[in-house]
Simulated scan of single mutants.
Amino acid sequence: MKILKDDLNFLTNLSEEFFAQETIVKKLNGFVDNQIKGWEIWLQVEFALFLFSHSDVAEVEREKRYELDKRMSKDKDICSIDFMIRQKHKQSSIPLEIKQHINASHCIRYMLKDIEKYEKVKGSSTTTGRSLWCLGVHPTVEEDYLNKLINENKFRDINSAYVFSKNIEGTKLSFTLI
């Protein structure tokens, strides 16, 4: 449980720093104002550049491929994880998926599906004992509604102590870590 809490704190700090950048806030507002959809790849690239130069990050891998356990996944053999982030002075990396959607409900649903997908990764294929985290960017919603979305879409219990959501200052968007 300490590892989960430490990972959440680390990812929360990274996310808060990332989304506090004036250039990121301007782009996010431009996407919203102009009703631009599908900027998830942009978000991943910008986040990667941020991580590569962050003083607390020792190593970043993008699109890390894993074999899926064929007993649990009948249709696919492999999956890719958006990021493997190794914090300085740590041995193993934190897997992170990033999602973005103009609808909070869809974003949370896709985040939870990614967690489910990661649980199908073949045990011998993983290089880390860390839990997968999902970072989602979506329109700001009330905390009660966010909790309802998580509870409606989950395939297993999600401990609310390991969920963090915050409005991105200067925007109508929030980021959520699950």
Rank of each mutant, 00 (worst) to 15 (best):
E46L: 06
F47G: 01
V45R: 08
Q21Y: 05
A48N: 07
V32C: 11
E22M: 04
Q21I: 11
H54N: 10
V32R: 15
E46N: 05
A48T: 12
I36L: 15
W39I: 11
G38V: 08
F50L: 06
W42Q: 00
D33N: 14
E40Y: 03
F52V: 06
F50K: 01
S55T: 13
G30D: 11
N29I: 00
N29D: 02
K37F: 11
G30A: 05
V45L: 10
L51T: 04
L43V: 05
F52W: 10
F47N: 03
I24D: 03
S53D: 09
E22S: 09
Q35H: 12
K26F: 04
Q35F: 14
V25H: 01
E46M: 04
L28M: 13
F50S: 01
G38D: 09
E40K: 11
V45I: 14
K27D: 12
N34G: 08
A48H: 07
I24L: 05
F47D: 00
F47Y: 15
E40Q: 15
V45S: 10
F50I: 01
I24T: 07
W42A: 04
Q44D: 01
K37T: 15
L28K: 09
K37H: 15
F52C: 05
H54K: 05
H54V: 11
W39L: 08
G38P: 02
K26M: 07
V25L: 02
K37A: 09
N34Q: 13
K26A: 07
A20D: 09
Q35L: 14
K37E: 13
N29L: 00
L28Y: 04
W42L: 03
T23I: 05
K26Q: 10
I24R: 03
Q21P: 00
F47T: 07
N34I: 02
F52G: 00
W39G: 10
E40S: 07
S55G: 09
Q44A: 07
I36P: 01
I24C: 07
W42S: 09
I41E: 12
N29V: 01
Q35I: 07
V32Y: 14
V25S: 01
V45G: 06
G30Y: 10
A20Y: 04
N34M: 14
G38N: 12
E40I: 12
K37G: 04
I41Y: 10
K26C: 05
L28N: 03
G30F: 11
D33W: 08
A48W: 05
V32S: 15
Q21D: 03
E22A: 09
Q21L: 09
E46P: 00
I41T: 15
A20N: 10
G38E: 13
T23W: 00
E40V: 04
L43G: 04
K26T: 14
Q44G: 05
K37M: 10
Q35A: 15
W39T: 08
D56T: 06
S55P: 07
S53E: 11
D33M: 14
K37V: 10
V25I: 15
A48G: 03
W42V: 00
G38S: 14
A20V: 01
G30I: 01
E22T: 13
G30V: 01
L49A: 12
N34P: 00
D33Y: 12
I24F: 06
K27H: 11
E40N: 12
V25A: 02
K37Q: 08
W39V: 07
L43W: 00
H54G: 03
F52I: 12
F31I: 06
D33T: 12
